[in-house]
């Protein structure tokens, strides 16, 4: 269960000569209960990754509170990390380790004993259909293969809450469908899933609940049907455009 209340985050960046402040996230609030797939939908640079990074305790919010399974991300970061599985935007696998070793490393850090870790890694390799690549070094893996390894790492300690930052990036159709099936199954098992994406169709196909984020703010949050109804659009893409204040007329 993720509860986000009014979180804000700004960064100082160096633009040409002058330093300037970029407000990446501005007063974002939403809830992602267990047993539901919550989508965080927004264009590139809208603040999705920053929000997820705050929730994954990687960076600290300037303002606001975020609580995961009762633990405050700011003050109980170690406990929060024990509850979550985080798949960042880039898979970030170790190229000189095999797929198996990559996953087992995370299993061991998560606290699994040797035998339990090996059993769990093998389970995940089977679940994600990775038997043919398990003992190969990840150097030279396709983006899809890397994502699978990273996903297995995120799932290795069977976390209650799963945060996925654009997980279907680089995946082919079949891999995407498999991933969706896995995510749905995890939801049915009662996990809380927060899924960020900029692809409308994907969010429409997968998410039970969507929060549209634009320029660091939540523009609207509801079920896909609810968003369609509120914006008066049948298509989620049109609904998104209306929600972020744009015109649905495509430029000539």
């Amino acid at each position: 269960m993720i509860e986000v209340k009014n979180i804000s985050k700004s960064f100082t960046t160096k633009k040409t000569e002058k330093k300037s402040k970029v407000h990446a996230v501005r007063g974002v609030s939403f809830e992602a209960p267990d047993g539901r797939i919550t989508g965080l939908l927004g264009a590139n640079g809208a603040g999705k990754s920053t929000t997820l990074r705050i929730l994954a305790t990687l960076i600290k919010a300037d303002e606001g509170v975020a609580v995961i399974d009762g633990y405050d991300v700011k003050n109980n970061s170690l406990e929060v990390r024990g509850q979550i599985g985080f798949l960042p935007h880039n898979s970030g696998v170790y190229p000189r380790l095999t797929a198996f070793e990559n996953i087992r490393y995370y299993a061991e850090i998560a606290g699994l004993k040797k035998q339990a870790a090996n059993t769990r890694v093998n389970e995940l390799i089977e679940l994600l259909d990775m038997q043919d690549i398990a003992d190969r070094r990840t150097e030279g893996f396709s983006q899809g293969q890397k994502t699978k390894v990273a996903l297995a790492r995120a799932l290795v300690h069977n976390p209650r809450t799963l945060m996925l930052d654009e997980p279907t990036n680089g995946l082919d159709v079949m891999a995407t469908r498999n991933l969706r099936a896995i995510i749905r199954r995890l939801r049915d098992e009662g996990h809380c899933i927060l899924f960020s994406s900029h692809v409308m169709q994907e969010v429409a196909a997968l998410c039970d609940y969507v929060a549209i984020i634009n320029e660091g703010k939540i523009a609207i949050s509801d079920s896909v049907a609810g968003i369609r109804q509120v914006t008066g659009q049948n298509d989620l893409e049109d609904a998104f455009v209306v929600a972020v204040g744009g015109s649905i007329e495509e430029p000539a």
Binding site: G92, P95, Y106, A110, A150
Partner: peptide
């Protein structure tokens, strides 16, 4: 640089 730090820091290790 190879983006492996981000997931590593999200693990329950101090």
């Amino acid at each position: 640089e190879r983006h492996s730090l981000e997931p590593l820091l999200s693990l329950s290790v101090s």
